[in-house]
Computed example of a mutant assay.
Amino acid sequence: MPALDNPAVPITPPEQWVDAYSDYLYRFAMSRLRNPEAAADCVQDTFLAGIKALDRFDGSRDIKFWLRGIMRNKIVDQIRKSVKENKVDIEAEDEALLESFWFKYSGIATTNPDPWQFNPRKYYDNSEFWVVFEKCIAQVKDPARQAFVLRVLEDQTTEEVCKVMDVTPNYLWVLLHRAREQLKVLLESNWTGKDAK
């Protein structure tokens, strides 16, 4: 256990982490990985990495959030492993988009998505919205979901995501576009906020 002079929050000892944080971390991993075995591995790897790095914990925040930060890296590792095992294949419709003259010239699609039925940004602070969001993102098909998780939820750079997924920046854009379209449809049909109609 690190010797902290004045930690800002009480430090939960490692022997209590499984009872205190495993459900929280497992749900977090499942919302991004959508694979029970990979999520469980991620939790275990997070606890092991946390124990090894505990001397670097500064006590400025709840250790639960420090562990979640470690887990973000483990999630990226799991997605990288999944991508290697299930090579990303470019679907025919994506190939047609990538090969279109306009996309090659400008790097953007020639069609715009339909406007949202509601503004999701209004609900960022609403915990009920995030429950619905997690259910919706779990339904987005891979590899689009993986790209969205890495780029948007885990805030990886385009270069980092392309390296992890072994795709070009243009194809990453296609995957993100597809994920956003699927997520939009799912959120519009599942979120019942007051301006959702």
Rank of each mutant, 00 (worst) to 15 (best):
I137D: 01
F148K: 05
N126T: 07
C162K: 15
C162A: 12
T158N: 08
N119D: 09
V167R: 13
R151S: 04
T158A: 04
V132F: 06
T158H: 05
A147F: 13
C162N: 14
Y124M: 12
K135Y: 13
L153N: 01
V167I: 14
C162G: 15
V149Y: 05
D125R: 13
Q139K: 06
Q156E: 05
V152H: 04
N170V: 04
E128S: 08
C162L: 13
V140K: 06
V164A: 14
V152Q: 00
D142S: 07
P143S: 09
P120N: 01
K163D: 15
V167T: 09
V131S: 10
V131E: 13
L175G: 01
Q146W: 11
E160C: 12
T168V: 12
L150I: 10
T158Q: 08
S127P: 08
V132T: 08
E154V: 00
V140E: 06
A144E: 09
D155P: 00
D125K: 15
D155E: 03
A138S: 08
C136W: 03
E160V: 12
V164D: 13
Y123H: 09
L175E: 03
E159R: 12
L153F: 02
A144D: 07
R145D: 07
D125F: 12
T157Y: 07
K135Q: 14
V167K: 13
P169K: 05
A144M: 09
E159P: 13
R145C: 06
V140G: 03
F148E: 01
D155A: 02
K141W: 04
R151F: 01
V131T: 09
Y124D: 12
